[in-house]
Design a protein around this nucleic acid. Structure first.
Lengths: 211, 211
DNA sequence: TTTAATCTTGATCGATTGGTCAAACTTGTC
DNA sequence: GACAAGTTTGACCAATCGATCAAGATTAAA
């Protein structure tokens, strides 16, 4: 099994099949979570047999961890890019846009993350209390500096961050509800994200701007 | 079985045990969803045997539907109360407060709802496209009237509604993440909700108020 | 073309899961 | 207290689930 997990380069088939499996796993785990998803379901979605899939990922948990690790990196990257030396409108605007783009392009990653949190985040505790906490403290400090410079109304930075996370992720996580309310005709989702960005920019920028 | 499902009044034991089971089911289903939760887990949490529990709720699905029905009523009630003839600040303020109170008092109900939506809302489709959609259209009309009367900046009503749902429910649904970031010392959660309300009021009211 | 390495999968396994059932126990009513 | 109604549960069941294994098929390298 060294070729599968060690330093040896992966074969063509391994690369292809791992990608297929990871994608299928994301599709499935994002809907019904770890316990509620079966290996047979993922294998079927990946277009292979269950033992074949287990040739590449030895256990269900190993597969889940791999998928979750990828989605976590996607989640953390835009947040890390928030520049404390920049202008609040520009920085927050860029972050909101990046989060909405993520919600649009990869809603299942967002839903996987939400699912893991709902389940008590057993596999994320270390990251939440480590990297994420550090990032949150760093960005909170930046927000405080913006407030002190009179560029923003006085508010709790942590809760502004929560507000942005909530407002943007909601478009991925509650997509089913939104589809039910708005219908699923062609163009509806695109229009939804245009309206989302416009609304969030209007309310948040107007709301944060001193009077 | 007539005594359990018909018009006959429920016995003392039936009332007590049903409540116990429903509470245990909410605790469990809100974390791992329908498929990921086992009847044994719920029965253990309710302090009884699985067959005993199945004496009161014939199947897993019947139990799940009962819990979900209760949580849905809790979800819809505050929204229905939004008065179109009232003042935007007062009405939205009351709604936000009610939603935050719900997130604080009954986070598991919120999480059950989120879980059901993540799973594609198989049991909620009728309500989402019916009652909720009707309510959303009614409240959107009210918001449009507020905008026309110059009481609010021009924005898409639907997306303001999403924003409020997202910002408030997040405190229940992502509680695990917040606990990880903020710690769980006594008083932390109470303080969190005070800050939540203050921040949401500041940003949303300031944001919606014309300049 | 040969051979070694890699990949695929039907059959199988032990454990788990949603249920069923009948006997024993408990509660309610007269 | 007697008896009917209601409640509880150990034992059991078929199906499902995460996994294992060995044999056959395919791919890669020489």
């Amino acid at each position: 099994m060294a070729a599968v997990t060690g330093e040896t380069p992966r074969t063509r088939i391994q690369q292809e099949n791992r990608e297929r499996i990871l994608k299928a796993a994301l599709d499935m785990f994002s809907r019904t979570g770890y316990r509620g998803t079966t290996l047979d379901q993922i294998a079927a979605a990946a277009g292979m047999s269950k033992p074949n899939m287990l040739y590449y990922f030895r256990t269900k948990e190993e597969l889940y961890r791999s998928v979750l690790q990828e989605t976590l990196e996607d989640w953390l990257t835009p947040f890390a890019k928030l520049d404390p030396d920049g202008d609040p409108s520009a920085e927050l605007g860029a972050y909101i846009s990046a989060k909405l783009a993520h919600a649009r392009i990869n809603p299942k990653a967002s839903r996987l993350f939400a699912n893991e949190i709902l389940q008590g985040a057993p596999l994320l505790e270390k990251t939440l209390k480590g990297r994420l906490k550090d990032l949150v403290e760093e960005k909170s400090k930046a927000i405080r500096a913006w407030i002190a410079a009179g560029k923003m109304v006085p508010i709790e930075p942590l809760h502004l961050i929560y507000m942005i996370w909530a407002a943007t992720q909601h478009y991925a996580d509650f997509e089913t509800q939104m589809d039910a309310l708005e219908g699923t005709e062609p163009g509806t989702r695109e229009k939804r994200f245009e309206n989302a960005e416009r609304t969030l920019f209007t309310v948040l920028f107007n709301g944060l701007k001193p009077r």
